[in-house]
Design a protein around this nucleic acid. Structure first.
Lengths: 194, 194
DNA sequence: CCCATATTACCGACCAGTTGGTCTTTTGGG
DNA sequence: CCCAAAAGACCAACTGGTCGGTAATATGGG
């Protein structure tokens, strides 16, 4: 079955918002690249903000929380789950030649000060990631295996992932990126005992 | 002496680029807020890119590398220098109500994929910070006080600062921000022995 | 089953406003 | 008088969004 107009729009919008950002993505771009008319776009979405919200939610779910949960539940221990996730995230990023980075992080910096509702949405997604990590790490904390409070570690981990994603986008160097993500693994190693 | 037109332009441009980003800052805004004419602007700068480069360089020097070097050289040890810098950075950020974040990081995400020369400029500034940190930490490495390679730690530190700055911009919560920056201090504590 | 009536999906010209940038003109100190 | 500095009118291209209209699809009574 052919892709519905709505799906064509949201997929192209995700792609453009991811790789160009909010301001640099024009609705004309979205509709022409998606092969639909301006009218069709405004039939489904009232404005640019609305589709951006949709895209942010879709991205956070499909690219972040679902994979993270999958890694954590599939692994034999939270620590191994984290390693697996870092590896997968790095591989995916590398396969895109370190372009785009994390849509959620990009939108976070571009929109947080300009659009309060976007900020709230993004904040919610980051909190969800934090909670997913926390609920996986809490057991370790009770066993005394955490060298840092679980929640504190979760926050530092998320921030480091975002920071490393940024640095990798700037440097666009595979070797360096590898070492950068290795440092992330070292952080896990430092903070969680076996 | 009164501020020269050039200075008025660059200061206002820095302010707008910092708090709104590249695309969201229009030259009309810059000139009207700076109280100068369009003609005056284009007398000093050939285009928007050029002044953005100037602003990025000014910011990286005045807000990042100079303060970092000052903290490291004033402290009794690199570790204490880092703590002092984190504290100062946090205090400055807080006094702006966690708005804007780090101009260099903002531009990194917004421009790295759109403008190769901007990317190179930003990359250079991040490398400089890395080198400043490295040269301060190398001695500790020889003394066996580093639990992580000095360069590796420097990179993780810079990335974490960027990530935490991002998270703080999103959450805009003073208590949370304090804990977030505390985690940064813990990272230093974990990686450097006394 | 047929067909009138709604409803939804879609089209693309068009709108006012803004953008980065150009060009001619004016100003005023040395 | 000269010329760097400054002014601001102006421009084509583009922006997000509107609008009047058409085509396709459901719906439901006779």
């Amino acid at each position: 079955m052919a892709k519905s107009t709505r799906v064509k729009i949201v997929e192209k919008a995700e792609n453009l918002l991811w790789y160009r950002g909010y301001q640099a993505t024009s609705l004309n771009d979205v509709v022409s690249k998606a092969g639909v008319s301006k009218g069709a776009f405004f039939h489904y979405y009232p404005n640019k903000q609305a589709i951006s919200q949709d895209v942010i939610n879709k991205y956070a779910r499909e690219q972040l929380s679902v994979p993270l949960e999958k890694c954590l539940s599939a692994a034999r221990s939270p620590k191994e789950g984290l390693f697996a996730w870092v590896e997968g995230y790095f591989a995916g990023y590398k396969s895109h030649e370190f372009k785009g980075g994390c849509l959620l992080g990009n939108m976070a910096l571009e929109l947080s000060d300009q659009n309060e509702t976007a900020r709230e949405t993004i904040k919610g997604h980051f909190l969800e990631l934090e909670n997913i990590l926390c609920s996986a790490l809490k057991p370790l904390e009770s066993e005394g295996k955490m060298l840092m409070e679980a929640r504190q570690f979760a926050r530092l981990f998320i921030a480091s992932v975002q920071g490393i994603t940024m640095m990798t986008k700037v440097h666009k160097d595979g070797n360096r990126a590898g070492r950068e993500f290795m440092a992330l693994a070292q952080l896990i190693e430092l903070a969680i005992k076996d």
